[in-house]
Amino acid sequence: MLINAEKVKRNKAIDKAARMFFLAMALLSSSFIVILVLFIFMKGISPFLPNYQYGTVNLIDFLFGMTYRQDQKLYGVGFIVINTLISSFAALLISLPISVLTALFIVKIAPKQLSGLMQAVVELLASIPSIVYGVFAAGVLTDFVKWLASLFNVTTAGGSSLLAVILLLAIMIFPTITSMAITAIGAVDRDLEHASLALGATETQTNFKVVLISAKSGIFAGAILGLGRAFGEATAVSMVAGNKLYGPTFSLFDITKTLTSTMLAGLKETTGLDYDIRFSVGIVLLVVIFGSNWLLNLVKQKVGNM
């Protein structure tokens, strides 16, 4: 007989054990997210509770306050949220078109060898640590900003500025968006291109009107990912943001302050409220990120359902 009853039974037992093992792994990793959020939340919420040992902070003042000064115990992050939104969205605005056009070139236009090389470069860019981008920004971008400001007769704080942050983030999210766009554009059915060309459309018309339109959902996903990275980038941003105490900052040459740089600056040299409040800022950052993701996903569904 070909089927061995014993063996079948054993195989079934192995299947069951494997399933349990995978389930355990999945639970472990997902529970980590829960633990992390819970921890941040509990720690971050404590300054607003009535019996907080360093003196309760008013939640409204915290959320909508436009001054953040440790020395005066003024912790308002309203302007910091606005600063963060401005710098991240501006970076996306710069990076998105460049990324998409680069991806289009790599996938559709460049000769094979060049396209392979460029794709490798993009992947390399994505793997460069943020601290390296940070020193580059502090050493090069700030000089550029200083020079640009001098053309307008503006003096900057050594180049640290909103503009430097925007440029830095635009560079940093470029590989993320480009990689996603490459995948999305590469996945467009060749049939659609052929259909377009067979209708007498030129290659450029085909690329813009059919290929990009068909890839828009994937490109959008890349934009969301890039924006997430821009919101969350702390190290490099802190190196060129400056430390503005009030705001929001609208002038490109003025220093700024983002949620991440607020959390990071002097974290190791402080205690008490000034330490705890960073967790509260963390909650705000999470809410900003989740909120933007949710909003962009809504937009994505609106534009992507064709």
């Binding site: 049939d191 052929h194 209708l199």
Partner: peptide
């Protein structure tokens, strides 16, 4: 000389925009 392919391959846009695509490209 127009062409119709083996697999139906409408563009991911509205019916109207599909038909208008060719003339618009001109």
């Amino acid at each position: 000389v127009g062409m119709v392919f083996q697999k139906p391959n409408p563009f991911p846009m509205s019916i109207y925009d599909n038909i208008a695509y060719g003339p618009r490209c001109q």
